[in-house]
Design a binder for these strands. Structure first.
Lengths: 243, 243
DNA sequence: ATGTCTTTGTGAACGCGTGCACAAAGATAG
DNA sequence: CTATCTTTGTGCACGCGTTCACAAAGACAT
């Protein structure tokens, strides 16, 4: 049992750096938009601007995939869309299960971007018997008892956990035992998984706290600059100061 | 990953590395759990395990905050909770607005972790007039016309964008113009913001695509391993190497 | 007081990611 | 065909983050 396997497998996946992989979806989205506007080619400078990254970085990223550009011209949009899609494995169908159909789970089930590209919601699963059979996003919720069967029957390898924190680890273990090897975790918990299983975490609370940190820093710098006169009644005096 | 803050200027946050800041909420969560179990002290090894990180990394992270540990003993849980909370700016109240009350926006409004620690949902805003006045999470949705007034009246500096992609940039600009300096973006778009504004992005679709990449790689390796074992004992010979 | 034991705090080495700057490659015009 | 212009692909250097390994610091027992 490995402790929270959040760090990368350390092995560069087929020579493609993790940082590059994380940007490929970004490029793909920008390219898809260009494709819909029937733009035939795009330069690294233009595409980088659309994706919000540095053009040198983009070119280096693409160089890991191969030499798909034409010097003096740029990149063929359609060809690049295909190459990135293939590299990301989006040319095949990925059945996905969502476990925990509360507010968030339901929102995820309704999320359009889910079905759009290669991903298909194979089932919605909840532990509450009262939810069973209830339609969410045009699909009946199934009871957690069926979890193993659903995963096996549909060949699901990607699971989304949207349960309360307390249930997440247990759900995770059942998913893994049933054959899931990639998990997207929305529950605010560190998941322990065996080697070979990938976990990605989406944590609203953490993102907000990081923003708060920077916000506080900005406020502090402002106050220092302005000699601090008009700040709200709640300063940050220590209310609790344990020894 | 935030596109608006990719090239972070020289504003290195008071000497605390960004990577460390991103982990502080993780430590805080683990410490809060210990605190609730009335555990008085914790070693770096134990806490690191609970947070799913390396213990040396944790100690180095804490060293940026100061010397809050006692050699031979560990860290005082309550004291550390306070120090990290203060460092993250969670000892003060952060009013937050959520713009775009669709499935996701409603889920966020109902999310408990929101209110739990310093963050308070000041208003729910939507552009659809039919939504106005409708209660979501015990709070009436307000029309987008009121956006500037709401932000100004409540001193909101953090905004959450949960609108469709097409509306995100425009909403973002209005938020920034009204005084918001930190944005959490759930819309699948690259946001352009002026310097001094922090953007963090949460993108379900990107996370799934990254998982798909690794999933595909796993499947490929399996196939390679099979092929290799079928061929002969020496496993690491020329895999697929396109010219 | 002294020695032993535990655990922190950190110097140093290393590896990854980023961005600059430029040569190579191809398009295009004359 | 040659010259020029555009844009890619990448060698290189630099800085950040991670990890190791250990000395310093304090607790605790005798």
């Amino acid at each position: 049992m490995a402790t929270g396997r959040n760090h990368r497998p350390a092995t560069r996946s087929r020579g493609i750096p993790e940082a590059t992989v994380a940007r490929l979806p970004l490029y793909l989205r920008a390219l898809t938009a260009l494709s819909e506007r029937s733009v035939p080619t795009v330069s690294s400078e233009e595409l980088a601007a659309a994706a919000g990254v540095n053009s040198a970085k983009l070119r280096k990223d693409f160089s890991y995939l191969g030499s798909y550009g034409t010097r003096g011209v740029g990149y063929d949009v359609e060809y690049l869309v295909y190459q990135i899609s293939r590299e990301l494995g989006l040319t095949q169908d990925w059945p996905v299960v969502i476990v925990g159909i509360g507010n968030l789970g339901a929102a995820l089930a309704n999320y359009g971007g889910f079905a759009s590209r290669g991903f298909r919601v194979a089932a919605l699963i909840d532990a509450d018997p009262a939810m069973a059979g209830k339609p969410v996003a045009g699909m009946p919720v199934q009871h957690a008892d069926e979890l193993e069967k659903i995963i096996s029957d549909n060949g699901v390898s990607i699971g989304v956990i949207a349960t309360p924190a307390g249930a997440a680890q247990q759900v995770c273990e059942r998913l893994v035992a049933a054959g899931v090897t990639s998990i997207l975790n929305f529950a605010p918990t560190v998941l322990s998984v065996p080697d070979g299983v990938d976990v990605r975490k989406v944590d609203l609370s953490i993102e907000l706290q990081i923003l708060a940190f920077h916000e506080q820093r900005k406020a502090g710098e402002e106050a220092d600059a302005e000699a601090a006169s008009r700040k709200g009644p709640d300063g940050d005096m220590p209310a609790v100061m344990p020894a």
